[in-house]
Design a binder for these strands. Structure first.
Lengths: 148, 148
DNA sequence: TATTGTTATACTCTATAACTATA
DNA sequence: TATAGTTATAGAGTATAACAATA
């Protein structure tokens, strides 16, 4: 069981591999976004919830969870925190009392507006070295990958 | 300088946000790659280690960890598994006996060659709906983001 | 004293299973 | 029976701190 002296005939630079690039790009954006949102008392995951609620009609917990691609049990703890902070409310759906209707409070809407600004700034920093054209292309490519 | 709108906010579709797209693209590629590598008895993280070892001269555990961006304590368990499987060896560096020199075995090189094929196929599936031009552009953009 | 590898530990994140209340 | 929310628990994954060997 000898040890080979490596002859990197066709080995790609580890930093060129898509998996590496995607992982570290995600990490970088999350770090930037969390830092930008921190003064508002929320993080990027909380912002995801707020975004869904601001974009949709008031939705059930399950609908929010499915939109974000997280488990419904994960959603519980996420909403617990946001409810305690006063940015969302939960009330039973009169039409189906098994469901909770989740809504933004007035304060939640203000937090969301401020968070949108902070988030956009974080994205701007993230994309500082990327041309507007390449940015549009990046979004388009990722969207076609995720949606396929 | 950002201005907070007091108007009803124009909320972007949650699925258009870069953070969402990057997270789910990463998840999709990892799932595809893990499935493709599974018959070889390794996963995408193991493949990352093999890739570093095949690309570089034999390296210390710390160097491998830093190249991959993981903690040195994480590297220990990763290498334990790969050593038990016979694809890498650890031996003390004669020049500095605090270090372990990590190398691919002959079997490890064969596993790596097969893994490269499997990995490329997984990437091909991942990029099935993306043109070659957009693929090159995607890599270029991500690289400039990660390296900045 | 500092560094490398190691171990033990804790902490985060998320998923699974079981429970409740409603349908 | 099935579904939405909840709770408890367990499993990855990773990071922090302390230790042994070596520099």
């Amino acid at each position: 069981m000898g040890v080979v002296s490596t002859e990197p005939s066709t080995s790609p630079d580890p930093h060129e591999v898509l998996g590496y690039l995607l992982k570290h790009a995600t990490l970088k954006l999350t770090t930037l976004t969390d830092a930008a949102l921190e003064p508002l008392g929320i993080d990027s995951k909380d912002f995801g919830v707020l975004r869904v609620l601001a974009h949709r009609e008031p939705a059930s917990q399950l609908q929010v969870a499915q939109t974000l691609g997280v488990d419904r049990t994960t959603m519980v703890a996420l909403l617990d925190v946001l409810e305690r902070k006063g940015v969302i409310t939960r009330r039973p759906d009169p039409a189906d009392r098994r469901r909770n209707v989740v809504s933004l409070t007035d304060q939640g809407l203000r937090v969301y507006d401020a968070a949108q600004v902070a988030h956009r700034q974080a994205e701007d920093v993230f994309l500082a070295g990327v041309t507007p054209t390449a940015t549009i292309q990046l979004r388009r490519t990722l969207r076609s990958i995720v949606e396929s």
